[in-house]
Design a protein around this nucleic acid. Structure first.
Length: 654
DNA sequence: CTAGGGTTAG
């Protein structure tokens, strides 16, 4: 690049730009290089007084091959306007740009230009048109191009094949595949991809095993295919087995873990990747951020953010959204806002992530305010945005506002409420104690209620100790999730809260007879980038002894300031003292104790829990925040609790 | 002409 600049300077001194040939040479070099130089190439182009066909073709081709091909179409129009002749090299590039942009009308116009110009019906243009039509979903037009083409090469066949694959027409693709006079590795890969897209992994595998030679893309295709079907371990063994891996192989496997809810493995593999000296790219970063978000792994997430800045990776709307979501899910709402404010281009995903992030962090009012700003900015909300908006209402206890948004999403935005939106409404009404109304809504809604929805209602029954509706809800839940013990645990707790001890005991006996277990509570906490996990009463952590000693200390210091353990939810037929022990080793208490001994005074303790925080842990955490002068931030199954100075951000309402 | 990507009720 440096040399190029020198040559360029010399050319300017010598007024070389009157010579279109010399100018075009340098232009070609620029345009062919990475996208970063296209801007420069364009500047050079603008200095050419009378660009010839070759010069136009070069700059158009540069843009067409870049990730942002739109200017190539604009330049093409200018070229036509300038009266410079087009030739058979001009068209394939603009057609390619249309394919990239899914610009069907533009593509059809260019198609007619080609016919009118009388340019040779060359195979490059035809292949481009096949590809363009298929990408725009007009597979029949693509087929007509293919059928009427006087000569077809391997690329024509491959384009037709992948055209069918992209439109989900696997059978037609297979027909093309079988009829091909010869097949290249791309043909096999495309067909394997086709089967993977339709979850027909047996057929995909059969081709993979049969193909004469494989490249790294063949392996990557198959790995991604198995991952999409949830067969992550098959993906992983292929990944381990493959002869060479590129950055896409690593990213595909990391993404597979991140999307398959195996976030720890995603991060572990990311470490392996960087240790192996492979540089993560845009797609890797997005997946890793998503894994950090789910784990609440703030330190890891921050490191990635630093990496993005340091490597000068552009914070586009996708990376930005991933960062917002990560910070919001880690309870760092200020950092999330910082990213959001600094983003140049925000799309509906970015706004939605920010609105949902504010809502779940307890800033319902700010979330609704932001929704207003989003409308002012002219961004159209989608159904997910309304999930965030309604979530803001439910956490803020804004019943009337929720009703208003729920109605307006259909009337003002034409978005039909989905089960998620009904879920938010049931939550809003239920938390506010309007259990009858919540139940009527469930019974009247046009979609079949699922277990999550019934679970929301049951949670509300638990908050308000309503055993009657609780029993009714459990009947439905039992049909949908017959093996889920947590449903009955909640019902037993409702009975206990209502003082119906006999009924609570009956539930316990029923559960025992069915061999049902409650899913164990799990809390995790990140210290110096390592995620530590704790289960109820587990003694697996290397610092177990210290942790339990700390628990003892906490318990005695708390009792001095008036803390009384709330053993209501414990229904074993055991002595009070043992009940106290059972709740004193809940996973979040273990994590808090570990946090107190492993982090420095004054730094907040951040915990992620898989279930809801129990009442006793909630009370204890409030006391601990005061006695030990520590902020404790617990990400619950549904909301954040910021414990500070003896109180919690959820106002004891969760 | 083939492979990897962000927001969703509890």
């Amino acid at each position: 690049m440096h040399q190029l600049l020198q040559i360029h300077a010399q050319m300017i001194r010598n007024h070389f730009f009157q010579d279109p040939f010399a100018a075009t040479k340098i232009l070609e070099f620029c345009a062919a290089s990475a996208y970063g130089n296209l801007h420069y190439a364009h500047k050079v182009f603008d200095q050419i007084p009378h660009p010839n066909t070759f010069a136009w073709n070069t700059i158009i081709r540069g843009y067409a091959a870049s990730p942002f091909p739109k200017p190539s179409l604009h330049l093409f129009r200018r070229m036509l306007g300038s009266g410079v002749a087009t030739n058979s090299y001009t068209y394939p590039f603009v057609v390619k740009a249309c394919a990239h942009l899914s610009a069907l009308e533009e593509g059809q116009q260019i198609h007619s230009f080609i016919l009118k110009s009388g340019a040779d019906h060359n195979v490059f243009s035809v292949n481009g048109l096949i590809h363009m039509y298929a990408t725009c979903g007009e597979v029949d037009l693509a087929r007509r191009m293919f059928d009427t083409s006087p000569d077809r090469d391997l690329v024509s066949w491959n384009s037709m094949l992948s055209g069918y694959v992209n439109c989900g027409l696997t059978a037609s693709a297979r027909h093309v595949f079988d009829e091909m006079p010869e097949r290249g590795v791309i043909s096999w890969n495309a067909m394997i991809n086709g089967y993977s897209k339709c979850n027909e992994m047996d057929s995909a595998r059969e081709l993979f095993d049969r193909m004469p030679s494989r490249n790294v893309e063949s392996w990557n295709t198959l790995i991604a295919g198995y991952a999409k079907c949830g067969l992550l371990d098959v993906s992983r063994s292929l990944f381990d087995e493959m002869p060479t891996r590129n950055v896409i192989s690593w990213s595909a496997m990391i993404t597979a873990y991140a999307q398959g809810n195996r976030h720890n493995e995603a991060l572990a593999l990311f470490d392996e990747m960087t240790n192996a000296g492979v540089k993560p790219n845009w797609a890797t970063i997005v997946s890793v951020l998503s894994a950090c978000a789910h784990l609440g792994a703030l330190e890891r997430g921050r490191c990635i953010h630093v990496y993005i800045d340091r490597s000068k990776m552009k914070v586009d709307s996708i990376i930005g959204t991933a960062l917002i979501d990560m910070y919001a899910k880690c309870g760092c709402i200020d950092s999330a806002c910082g990213v959001f404010d600094a983003m140049k281009s925000k799309d509906v995903f970015s706004w939605t992530a920010m609105i949902g992030g504010l809502a779940v962090n307890g800033y319902g009012g700010k979330a609704l305010e932001l929704f207003g700003r989003m409308e002012e900015a002219g961004v159209r909300p989608n159904e997910v945005t309304f999930v965030g908006v309604l979530c803001a209402c439910s956490h803020g206890g804004l019943v009337q506002t929720a009703r208003w948004y729920f109605d307006s999403m259909r009337t003002a935005y034409g978005i039909e409420p989905q089960i998620e939106h009904y879920g938010c409404m049931v939550d809003t009404l239920g938390r506010a104690g309007l259990l009858e109304e919540a139940l009527s809504l469930v019974q009247a809604m046009p979609v079949e209620p699922n277990s999550v929805l019934w679970g929301t209602l049951l949670g509300a029954c638990w908050i308000h100790g309503n055993a009657n509706i609780g029993e009714y809800v459990v009947e439905h839940l039992a049909k949908l999730k017959p093996d889920d013990g947590s449903v009955y645990v909640l019902l037993a707790n409702i009975y206990a809260t209502a003082g119906r001890w006999d009924d609570a005991k009956k539930i316990r006996i029923f559960m025992k007879s069915k061999g049902m277990l409650k899913s164990p509570g799990r809390s995790s906490m990140e210290v110096e980038g390592i995620v530590h996990e704790f289960y109820v009463g587990d003694k697996l952590h290397p610092r177990t002894e210290e942790i339990y000693r700390m628990l003892d200390e906490i318990s005695s210091r708390l009792k001095l300031v008036g803390y009384v353990p709330n053993t209501t939810p414990v229904l074993f037929d055991i002595e009070e003292e043992e009940k106290e022990h059972a709740i004193s080793v809940h996973s979040e208490k273990l994590a808090i104790a570990f946090g107190l001994i492993s982090t420095s005074a004054g730094s907040p303790i951040r915990i992620v829990k898989n279930l809801r925080v129990c009442r006793d842990c909630h009370t204890a955490a409030k006391f601990i925040s005061k006695v030990y002068d520590r902020e404790i931030i617990v990400r619950d199954r549904n909301i954040f609790h910021y414990f500070k100075d003896g109180s919690c951000s959820c106002r004891d309402y969760w």
